[in-house]
Amino acid sequence: MNDIKLGQYVHGYSLIHLLDPRTKIICCTFIVISILSNHNFWYLLAYLGLILAAIKYSGIPYKSIWRSMRGIRYLLLITFLFQAVLTPGEGLIQLGALSVTREGLSIGLINLLRLVILFLGSILLLMTTTPMKLSAGLEYLLLPLNKIKIPVQHFTTIISISFRFIPTLVEESIIIKDAQRSRGASFDSPKIFSNIKSYLAILIPLLASSMLRAEELAEAMDSRCYGGNPNQYRMQSLKYRRVDIYLIIFMTMVLFMGLFLG
């Protein structure tokens, strides 16, 4: 339970850690826009290099990133294969009725790169920003939505509570699973339906206990005067420094480069 999970915050003091969360969120948005609007292979490759450099700089070991990459390897593989096979064009290799095309390979490669960059970018954001800072940054950036009566603070409170409770729920589901198993339930039956059934037996107690948890949590929040007002303290801890501004200028330039090179 204690090893690093996908995208969980890793404490550190690198430049990337110390960046303002707003900067990081804005940069990630820029990454998404420029990646999705551009399909120049070399541009994407350069982008990948940029993100790898940022990861290196953040002090997060490549090993843990690599391990989390393995979680999406099938997604990557399938994306690549489908693109390679299903794109019409100049055939290279014939596989029965399907043919791998040159165009397919290049589009597949580009989409692969895009996915990897998106994944690495968001994982870097998550691993170098505490959930609270992240929600403070989101709250600040979304605050204008308050004007059209969208309760942004409630959303960010919900986000931070889910960050808090995901590990607790995982732990609890393991306990329930063990309890079921100790009474003879099997979770790796070859029959899909009996498998689904036994997982249902985990889900229902988990849901019931979550309801109870929610009630107690609400009481605890109430008794500490939670009022859903904007979280001034958290947001005031956000401070733009010179690096943040440089980085945003730099990323804007990269974004425009992407838009025009496209």
Binding site: T130, P131, M132, S160, I161, F163, R164, T168, L212, R213, E216, L217, E219, A220, M221, R224
Partner: peptide, 12 residues
Amino acid sequence: FQNPDNQLICPV
């Protein structure tokens, strides 16, 4: 409250 898990709200 009684249950230490259900009264901690924040992730840090």
